[in-house]
């Protein structure tokens, strides 16, 4: 996005960076506060990952300028996401496969 931005546009970006910074700090405080509620594992995991995903999206969208990025970058990221999901599925598949676990534990 470097070439096409005027000084005025950059100043607007700078204001946005400050809002995002404030939001990220608030969300970090929320993450820590929720951890003190001693939720059971599933709701704790859901809250933590939802907040982390929201924070990560803000960083990617605004600081990494993904919102105005060219299609080729999104093509890279979509392909990476497909491989990532496939890898997660392999791990979950392995978890559900309990063959041999009993003999290993004993």
């Amino acid at each position: 996005m470097s070439e096409a931005h005027s000084a005025e546009e950059v100043q607007k970006h700078v204001r946005m960076y400050m809002y995002i910074f404030g939001t990220l700090l608030v969300m970090t405080a929320v993450t820590v506060a929720v951890s003190y509620l001693n939720l059971s594992i599933v709701p704790a995991l859901v809250v933590a990952l939802v907040v982390a995903t929201f924070k990560g999206t803000l960083v990617a969208r605004y600081f990494m300028h993904l919102s105005g990025e060219k299609p080729i970058i999104f093509q890279f990221l979509i392909l990476t996401a497909v491989f990532l999901v496939f890898m997660f599925i392999l791990f979950i598949w392995a978890l559900s496969d309990q063959r041999g676990v009993a003999s290993y534990v004993s």
Partner: peptide, 9 residues
């Protein structure tokens, strides 16, 4: 992502 998954959960 590391902070909540390793430290908090």
């Amino acid at each position: 992502f590391l902070f909540p998954t390793i430290y908090l959960i």
